[in-house]
């Protein structure tokens, strides 16, 4: 187990190094070739296609040294935990990420928990009541949830909430450590909505897994032993049906945390998504590279954790 873990950790680090190289190459070599670089963007705002101004801006923003040199500087910074400073406001990217990452992870995590709390029972009920009305209702609901974009649902809820009940989500964002109650009030609705979309897929997956497990011999044995239906489902079937769910859930978390930009905009939350989106518009290199490295790290380590978690969920699996 320890050897496996060490090997995976080394692989993860190599993957991350490759990610930095790919992101840097895309952003600093490919994008300027096919689009523009940050100096072009700023020069355009000045209304001038002036090579001297462009050079001046490149020097000013530290973009005039050689690309390999800039890459090594970037990786060196990463090793020190320093992602550099935003080209446009001079703020430390590390500081911004420290403030914003917990918001996005919390949104993704709570969303996922909410999604699981909805989808697992729904999937189990749909399987147990296969081809009866609860199954039809829950499957229809799952398809509906899958078909409705989360941001649309968010706007609908806000609009109808305000029209019918004069309700609106809280405006003043507060961090968990500053004001937990306000924080929960503002995070609850977006987190719930974020959880809705993946929960639609999870309901269907859970149902399929449960149906498969329920046909296994050991379930029949458990039933033959005279165990109650609840005990068979919860203790024997559910645990085994959850294995692929864990995989999906584990791999969803980073994408949920990274994909919250629209919800952050609608609910006024200072998360990573809005930070990345605003940086992409300006080609703010340190911000884009920093956030990408963070997202890649989340994905790589989620993968690792998912793999390791199998040994706890399914005793047959050994590394």
């Amino acid at each position: 187990m320890a050897a496996y873990f060490t090997r995976r950790l080394m692989l993860a680090l190599i993957t991350l190094l490759l990610v930095t190289l790919i992101v840097f190459t895309l952003l600093r070599v490919i994008v300027p070739l096919v689009y523009a670089d940050a100096a072009d963007i700023i020069a355009a705002e000045y209304g001038r296609q002036d090579p001297a101004l462009r050079e001046q801006l490149k020097r000013q923003y530290g973009l005039s040294s050689s690309l390999p040199g800039q890459y090594l500087e970037f990786v060196g910074g990463l090793l020190r935990g320093d992602f550099g400073k935003s080209l446009f406001n001079g703020r430390s990217v590390t500081g911004e990420i420290k403030d914003r990452l917990p918001v996005s992870i919390e949104l993704g995590f709570v969303g996922l928990i909410a999604g699981l709390l909805m989808s697992v029972p729904m999937g189990v009920i749909a399987a147990v009541r296969q081809d009866r009305w609860p199954d039809y209702v829950l499957r229809t609901l799952a398809i509906l949830l899958n078909a409705m974009p989360g941001f649309w649902l968010a706007i609908l809820i806000i609009t109808l909430g305000s029209v019918w009940f004069n309700w609106a989500p809280p405006l003043d964002f507060a961090y968990l450590h500053d004001d937990p109650i306000t924080h929960l009030k503002i995070m609850a609705m977006p987190a719930l909505l974020i959880g809705l979309t993946p929960s639609a897929g999870l309901v269907r997956l859970m149902r399929t897994q449960m149906l498969e497990v329920m046909r296994q011999d050991y379930i029949r044995t458990a039933q033959a032993k005279g165990l109650t239906g609840r005990s068979v489902i919860v203790r024997h079937a559910l645990r085994n049906a959850l294995i692929p769910i864990v995989t999906v859930v584990g791999l969803s978390l980073p994408s949920l945390a990274a994909g919250t930009a629209i919800f952050e905009s609608i609910f006024g939350l200072p998360g990573m998504g809005r930070y990345l989106v605003s940086a992409v518009g300006n080609l703010d290199y340190p911000v884009i590279m920093g956030t990408n490295v963070i997202f890649a790290t989340l994905i790589v380590f989620s993968n690792l954790l998912v793999d390791l978690s199998y040994t706890f969920i399914d005793p047959r699996i050994r590394f």
Partner: peptide, 17 residues
């Protein structure tokens, strides 16, 4: 507060915030 979405802004206005 920074609220980019029109619908969210309108909801806040209706709610007197």
């Amino acid at each position: 507060p920074i609220v980019p979405e029109y619908a969210a802004g309108l909801a806040q206005f209706r709610a007197k915030r």
